[in-house]
Simulated scan of single mutants.
Amino acid sequence: MRFTSLGSGSEGNALVVEVSEGASTTRVLLDCGFSVRELQRRLLRAGLDFSDLDALIVTHEHTDHVGSALTLARKARLPVFMSWGTALACGADDGSIDLRILWAGDPLAIGDIEIHPYTVPHDAREPLQFVFSDGDARLGVLTDTGCPTPHIVEMLGGADALVLECNHDREMLAASRYPASLKRRIAGDLGHLANDAAAHLLAQIDRSRMRHLIAAHLSQQNNTPELAKAALAQVVGAAAGDIVAATQADGFDWRTL
């Protein structure tokens, strides 16, 4: 199994997960927060095209995640997997796409990829996050949540790789020019993980198999890669330079498990 981010942040998110078994390869796109043209450009950078994708999975209806997902689904004739609440919120239930409904706690298989949806506290209709597996290695993804929960800790435990939200630094957010209402939303229990909250979550999960740790969904206004990486590095006893931070412009390169 290998995975790459095409971009991560408040301006757009997309992640590709790929599993190869013998002569067959399965690829799924997690979120599509970019225009179709921009997504194509980013896929080409990763050596891929629309035709290489087998399915699209959407975490929730916020624009930086759903973006052009429905347009892409129609253009590339891709099945789209999301919760019923997300489908209602983004208008995916109009019959124009091949919609497949996901239920938290009900694993499914797309080709050779095992997918485990799980619930998170976030201010969306019915948000889900995911753990991907090829039967041996596990990739945990958590990009939008307001606070750690025991269920999240359980779902991410034992992952070989973790893409973990480090959205903001609390002091930078407090000092920013954002309206007070937006600051409360971001920092609230249904908003986004601060660096210290992400580190607290990381400290609780079973990291015995972890080989890749990536800080993701960083705010360009209220965080820095250095602060995010330092927070996670302190938990795992590594140097900050050993932690990867996904960027809005480039995401991160292919990682193999």
Results as ranks from 00 to 15, higher is better:
Arg2Ala: 00
Ser5Arg: 00
Gly7Tyr: 08
Gly9Gln: 07
Asn13Trp: 03
Ala14Pro: 15
Leu15His: 14
Val17Trp: 04
Glu18Ser: 06
Val19Ala: 12
Ser24Cys: 07
Thr25Phe: 06
Thr25Lys: 10
Leu29His: 01
Asp31Ile: 05
Gly33Thr: 09
Gly33Gln: 08
Gly33Ser: 07
Ser35Met: 03
Val36Met: 02
Arg37Ala: 15
Glu38Ser: 12
Leu39Lys: 05
Gln40Phe: 01
Arg41Lys: 09
Asp49Pro: 00
Phe50Tyr: 10
Ser51Pro: 08
Ser51Asp: 10
Ser51Trp: 05
Asp52Tyr: 03
Ala55Ser: 08
Leu56Ala: 07
His60Lys: 01
His60Phe: 09
His62Asn: 12
Thr63Gly: 13
Thr63Trp: 10
His65Ala: 03
Gly67Lys: 01
Gly67Gln: 03
Ser68Pro: 00
Leu72Lys: 12
Val80Glu: 04
Met82Trp: 03
Met82Cys: 03
Trp84Val: 06
Gly85Met: 08
Gly95Leu: 07
Leu99Pro: 08
Ile101Met: 01
Leu102His: 08
Trp103Leu: 12
Asp112Glu: 13
Ile113His: 02
His116Met: 09
Val120Thr: 01
Asp123Pro: 04
Asp123Leu: 13
Arg125Pro: 02
Glu126Gln: 09
Pro127Asp: 13
Phe130Glu: 09
Val131Tyr: 00
Phe132Asp: 01
Gly135Ala: 00
Arg138His: 00
Leu139Thr: 04
Leu139Ser: 05
Gly140Arg: 07
Thr143His: 00
His151Phe: 11
Val153Arg: 06
Glu154Ile: 00
Leu156Met: 04
Gly157Tyr: 02
Ala159Ile: 13
Asp160Gly: 13
Ala161Cys: 14
Leu164Gly: 11
Asn167Leu: 04
Asn167Val: 11
Asp169Gln: 10
Arg170Asp: 11
Arg170Ile: 11
Met172Ala: 14
Ala175Ser: 05
Ser176Lys: 06
Arg177Gln: 11
Tyr178Cys: 04
Ala180Trp: 10
Ser181Met: 14
Arg184Thr: 10
Gly188Lys: 03
Leu193Ile: 12
Asn195Leu: 12
Ala197Glu: 15
Ala197His: 08
Ala198Ile: 15
Leu202Cys: 06
Gln204Thr: 01
Arg207Asn: 14
Met210Asn: 04
Arg211Gly: 15
His212Cys: 06
Ile214Val: 15
His217Phe: 13
His217Cys: 13
Leu218Gln: 07
Asn223Val: 05
Thr224Pro: 13
Pro225Lys: 12
Lys229His: 07
Ala231Arg: 03
Ala231Thr: 09
Leu232Met: 10
Gln234Thr: 15
Gln234Lys: 15
Gln234His: 14
Gln234Glu: 14
Gln234Val: 12
Val235Pro: 09
Gly237His: 08
Ala238Pro: 10
Ala240Gln: 14
Gly241Trp: 10
Asp242Lys: 06
Val244Asn: 06
Ala246Met: 11
Phe252Ala: 13
Phe252Gly: 06
Phe252Glu: 14
Trp254Ser: 13
Leu257Lys: 06
Leu257Glu: 12
